[in-house]
Design a protein around this nucleic acid. Structure first.
Lengths: 250, 250
DNA sequence: CGGACTATTGATTTGCGTCAAAGATTGTGG
DNA sequence: CCACAATCTTTGACGCAAATCAATAGTCCG
């Protein structure tokens, strides 16, 4: 049994009620573990994949190249995320998914997922909710890139990733987030040089800093203030009803 | 019977096969027509709406305010779009939906839609596909705002809206698109002044111009080149199978 | 006819990109 | 275990795209 399936199932349970049989069916999905080196392409733009994947380890990104050669990262995916969940409904990939670090992903055959959804509508609903959440995140990114200056823009991104990683405990904490400044530049639509200088501003303000592929949040409230962060878009509305987590809380 | 329901149904049919009973069930959805003045708020951020709406006439936008007072438009909605389709799965609105022009929308009760989806899974699938398409558009916007200079950025937006309006016929055409320069500024993350100047550049290049709330495309190929536009993200992959349109092709 | 948007233009400022190059870190193979 | 390359971070100087400020028209509408 794959722990990451349990992790993902718990995520679904946060917003959708699933019975025991549904949970068991989900957990017994066929799957194949795949290793990818850094810069490895998991899915190429235009390609129609026969499977969707679930991130086990590492950091992945969805990218889009402009003809002028600039690469934009339109989404980041960490452990427990499904970068190409949308491929279930829209098979042709509209963006390339690459590994920013060496990564391990679990491939789930599209056919098995579709069969599962057909048999258990509640699972389809749960997955649909996840795609809606991804869309909400994208919109937030549009606003972030379009309406904020460099420092708050970076701060907002770090806030989001902290919440998505589930590490936002207390006013100071740190977690592993192996992203390079070049990647941050591609994510936020800034130059590498300016990312560097803005990170220094954040450090000087004593709200956060990056060291050894880890983000150290020194003042969580302050970081949120700088980034004008309101995390409501990361929750899928109120859960229908709180319910016990599946075995092995992720 | 509401023509806009037929229009929307035809849109679903482009990517999802639906039987006659499913089509009829959809077309007989309960609905209420609502008029909104310009600047009217259709759904406020945070609010949980009891219905989803379908645009009949006018131009709507989803907006997000930053604390510093800047308003960013994260999505535009034209006739035949469903601005809050995602609300079906995520009831609390994460953005405000406003009318940029006087508008007419059709309200579809959330409960009826959910009942429809429960009874006809194929309709759920079709709606799910629509939310996935919306997400693909958002990601494209992230790339557009993050990676392109002013003129190509505007050009790209106009290309998208032309295709979404279904008016991209031949190398020169025009259509009604009543957006102000201030709205364009909020959409692309630019200042009003710079929008004005960039539009002038587009006009001088003889690719397009705006007049009387209409966009005149003079050189469609040229406009796409300037905007580095590839419209593949607007299609929901290959349709499962081509099928006849419902009565009254929109 | 007056008030409120909307479009346009010029002058000035600035946030950020680009260029260039020097450290620091990491990984790899001999 | 140490070269050596490759990648990543940091710094400085300079230039530009676009923001801001300010003001004039044009347009719509009650």
């Amino acid at each position: 049994m794959q722990p990451v399936l349990v992790q993902f199932l718990n995520r679904l349970l946060r917003h959708t009620k699933l019975g025991d049989d549904e949970q068991n069916a989900f957990l017994s999905l066929a799957s194949a573990e795949i290793d990818t080196p850094a810069h490895g392409i998991v899915i190429a733009r235009g390609q129609t994949a026969a499977s969707s994947c679930l991130v086990m380890e590492g950091l992945l990104a969805k990218t889009r190249e402009t003809l002028s050669g600039r690469r934009q990262i339109t989404a980041l995916y960490i452990s427990g995320d499904m970068p190409d969940l949308h491929a279930l409904m829209m098979p042709a990939a509209t963006g390339t998914i690459v590994a920013l670090t060496p990564a391990k992903v679990l491939r789930l055959p599209r056919a098995s997922l579709l069969a599962l959804v057909a048999r258990y509508p509640a699972i389809g609903e749960a997955l649909w909710r996840e795609t809606v959440r991804d869309a909400a995140i994208s919109m937030e990114w549009v606003a972030n890139v379009g309406a904020r200056l460099a420092m708050p823009r970076l701060a907002h991104l770090f806030c989001e990733m902290a919440v998505r990683s589930g590490v936002d405990k207390g006013n100071a904490f740190d977690w592993s987030f192996p992203i390079t400044q070049a990647n941050l530049a591609e994510t936020t639509g800034m130059s590498v040089v300016h990312v560097n200088r803005s990170l220094q501003s954040l450090r000087r303000r004593a709200v956060m800093e990056v060291r050894d592929h880890r983000v150290l949040v020194r003042d969580w409230a302050g970081l949120q203030a700088v980034g004008e962060f309101e995390g409501d878009y990361l929750a899928c509305g109120a859960p229908e009803r709180p319910q016990p987590a599946a075995l092995m809380p992720a």
